[in-house]
Design a protein around this nucleic acid. Structure first.
Length: 289
DNA sequence: AACGACCCCAACCGCAATGAG
DNA sequence: TCTCATTGCGGTTGGGGTCGT
């Protein structure tokens, strides 16, 4: 008489002990896809029994949501998506699933990984915390405006023409209500303007943000106001650079990044051009010794 | 070629929220 | 109202790949 027959271990427990873990095989993927095609999403705990998969419901759900769903987009995070992630994270903090909802085809896991590997790495390079003021300053005064510029300059897609001017026009039109919510795009990314901070004049979600990166000194480029970015490009550096130079030694990390070869910064949204830009602005303004 | 350091990302874990009985 | 099962979310880990020495 084994322990199961004696009732010492429940059937659930027994099945848990049979459970497979680790990387999924092609066969398992096929079984899961077949199951979802027939039964639809949901009721994940019944997958094992009905499909023959020896996986937990949680594992099946995760595999489907993060990997097998047909609407998923694979590949690098685009500039537009990066901009949106930075924006939304500044507003909502680590609410990955909520952020992912604004990026069709992207998963919370993907965005979370992106944030951890890219953004937190940069914070480490800057020798500051992601939620520190200096990091937020750098983000809102340098990276995001530059990202918008780069999106505008990008000619990777004819449909993606978001120059500084058009960005300003676009944002103005949103602010003034000339652009409908349904029309709102940043580059190729569809944006629900209700999530764009302060465009609608309401902030219903501001209360439930786990991490609110709201700077009390929000000035020329309030991180919560995407509509300010084009504006900040026109007039913003003066005040932003004062902020930056006054609170941390930007030259240190610019130099460090240059010495390191700027591997990450050379990628999608940061490169030597940006370092040059940053240096130029600082030296022009006389903020760097 | 071998090794170590680092990066990326799929997958797991624990907890909270939700819903059904 | 309570309990239990299920689902969803965010944090973390570990393995494979890449790069530099």
């Amino acid at each position: 008489m084994d322990i199961y027959q004696r009732g010492l271990i429940s059937e659930t427990r027994q099945s848990n002990m049979d459970e497979r873990k680790g990387p999924w095989t092609e066969e398992e993927d096929f079984l899961l896809k077949s199951y979802v095609n027939v039964h639809g999403e949901g009721r994940w705990n019944s997958v094992a029994g009905l499909s023959g998969l020896k996986r937990s419901g949680k594992s099946c759900r995760l595999r489907w949501m993060n990997y097998l769903r047909p609407e998923l987009r694979r590949g690098n995070i685009s500039l537009q998506e990066q901009l949106l992630i930075l924006q939304l994270h500044s507003r909502w903090g680590n609410r990955w699933s909520k952020i992912a909802q604004q990026l069709p085809g992207r998963t919370d896991n993907e965005i979370k990984n992106y944030w951890r590997t890219r953004v937190q790495k940069l914070a480490k390079q800057l020798q500051c915390e992601v939620d520190s003021k200096q990091f937020r300053d750098a983000m809102r005064c340098v990276w995001i405006p530059r990202l918008i510029e780069r999106i505008g300059a990008s000619s990777e897609s004819p449909s993606v023409q978001l120059s500084t001017t058009t960005a300003a026009t676009y944002m103005d039109s949103i602010s003034s209500g000339q652009t409908s919510h349904a029309d709102a795009t940043i580059g190729s990314v569809q944006v629900d303007p209700s999530v764009l901070p302060e465009l609608s004049g309401t902030s219903s979600d501001s209360h439930d943000a786990q991490v609110a990166y709201v700077s009390e000194q929000a000035d020329c480029c309030n991180p919560l106001s995407i509509s300010d970015y084009p504006h900040s490009l026109e007039k913003g550096w003066d005040s932003c650079s004062e902020n930056l130079a006054g609170t941390w030694n930007i030259d240190d990390w610019v130099g460090q990044e240059a010495r390191d070869g700027g591997e990450w910064m050379a990628s999608a949204w940061w490169n030597e051009e940006n370092v040059w830009f940053l240096r130029q602005q600082l030296y022009d303004d006389g903020n760097v010794n």
